[in-house]
Design a protein around this nucleic acid. Sequence first.
DNA 1: AGGCTTGAGTTTGTATACAAAAGCCTTTAG
DNA 2: CTAAAGGCTTTTGTATACAAACTCAAGCCT
Lengths: 251, 251
Amino acid sequence: MNVKTASVLPLGGLETGPRERGRDEEIYRSLYTAIVEHHLAPGARLPEDALAESFGISRTGIRKVLQRLAHERLIELAPNRGATVAQPSVQEAREVFAARRIVECAALTEIGREPPPVAALDELKRIVAAETDAQARGDKREAIHLSGLFHLRVLALADNRPLSDFLGQLVSRTSLVIAMYGTPLAAGCNRCRHEQLIELLAAGDTAAAARWMDEHLREIEAGCAFAESEPQATDLKRIFAEIAKRPRSEV
Amino acid sequence: MNVKTASVLPLGGLETGPRERGRDEEIYRSLYTAIVEHHLAPGARLPEDALAESFGISRTGIRKVLQRLAHERLIELAPNRGATVAQPSVQEAREVFAARRIVECAALTEIGREPPPVAALDELKRIVAAETDAQARGDKREAIHLSGLFHLRVLALADNRPLSDFLGQLVSRTSLVIAMYGTPLAAGCNRCRHEQLIELLAAGDTAAAARWMDEHLREIEAGCAFAESEPQATDLKRIFAEIAKRPRSEV
DNA sequence: AGGCTTGAGTTTGTATACAAAAGCCTTTAG
DNA sequence: CTAAAGGCTTTTGTATACAAACTCAAGCCT
């Protein structure tokens, strides 16, 4: 989609800007990934200077990205205090799950009674397969990512952009909630489950699909141990260097 | 809520910054109001220079506000082209209505079976009364504003912050849709309708309330004539001067 | 005569500089 | 030895300057 030039340059790049457009989109992507994949723990401070240096641009560019993340509630922006990775409270966590139940279930009952196109179902099957594979390899991060992607692609069946964007936010925040309150075993039981939903969708039984989704989300929520967590120090440069060199699973 | 100092200063203020916090919140509010109350037509250009001069701050502060509005999809931010008031396409308009149906109806069925607290119902009645009054005076802008507020306060019964924020965005965008496609008579039939919903809520009949809401939103959508509209030139300074001196209805 | 190119003027993109606020550490007095 | 106060450092807030990109229009070439 974007240019994806060879911007893995020495990171201490001499020239001020490689002039490729979508540079800040790339920076946003890096920070986003770092947060939802738990490379940055909730509560971690994000000083503008450090970020600017890490990405080789000035604070001006960083602030734009930070404000976008703040609007998506992935970070918190306190006046004169700067940015920190958001730490959703227990109440916020429950509200995120409640919102997901409402949106995802309602959208599922709204989609037409006839089964979705086979191409869409095939894509869902591919995601589940990749999810199975990731779990077999013990790659927890990829598994969480693919689980979120599955929910997103299911909602895409409703063909409603505002709703899809909103669920994207909720899925991201769910990732934060799991970072704070999630138990390791909670993410494990998704595999078989997601396959069940595909079957219900293929059969065109939207009512059953909605009921299934409600139960599924309640199980995930129940798998969280809502207790407090503590912040931890992080070194930003190492984290982003690792993210940059990782292969990217298609969005 | 915020300090609300006497910041109606001569507008050509000599000192660089009055130092009151919430200054850009106030600027955001002005722009937001100008857009949703149709003082700024869809497609109107919003040059940073002109806005900066109008509000007496530099472009830096304006850009922050502009990015927030862009994220809420009230304006569109084209690279190297600047900001314009969003012009939702017909498809986007329909998606906004569809999203509202899904969210508002589902939230209504989710709220507890017992009737809401009397204080909440009283507030809704007050809003409807103000709405009736505004329509009697022929104050179309206030009527639209109060109609949106009514929907927002109804959803507040679900007590879910993410959902409320999302509906806030959808209501704003509905205002834009009406600016582009709305027929003058469409907004007129809301009065009696809103009273009906209060009765259903008071009776605790959430299923009927959800059905009512679905039909209500479909009627509003049906009241729109989905055809094209043309941009128009605007003088920013006069618009914001008028908004600043207008009395503000709460929230 | 029409389309393409080139130029000025305008608007946005980005960096940097400076000022204000918050945090932290030292120092001092009780 | 503790606690409060003061300055010092770090970090953010804001403006401004300069560079790049786009718009629009006039002129030139085909």
